[in-house]
Amino acid sequence: MASIRLSVPSKAASGDVIELKALIQYPMESGYRRGSRGEAIARDIITKFECTYDGEVIFKASFGPGVAANPFLSFHTVATKTGTITFKWTHQHGEVWSDSAEIIVT
C-alpha cells in the first residue's frame, strides 16, 4: 500500500485561496534504467492525478517518466464550502490510490 501525505487547511474563510499539497510513495521507475545485471527495468509510473472538492474536479495532472520518484504536487483552490477534498492517483495499468481530507469553510 502506498504511503500518502496530504496538506489541506482544516479551516478557511469562504473565498480564500488555499494551497493543497500531496505526496505519494511511488518509485516512478522511468523505464530507462538497467539493473545490476544489465537487464532493462520496465517503466512503472503513476500517469494521472485528480483532485475533487465536494465531487467537482478542481485540478488534474498528467505525469510522464520525468516526474521525480515519490511525486510531490502543490496547487491552489478557492475555499467555497465545508466538504471533502479527495486526491486520486492512477497507475499506468489502472490501479488507483486515493485519500481525502475535510475542510470547514466559514
Binding site: 488555499i18 520525468g66 510531490f72
Partner: peptide, 23 residues
Amino acid sequence: VSHIADFELGPRSGKAEVSTRVR
C-alpha cells in the same frame, strides 16, 4: 521523454501556481 508533466486548472483554482519535482 520531453513531456514531463501537465496540469489542468480552472477558475476555481484562484491562483495559477503549481509546484512539483522533476527528473
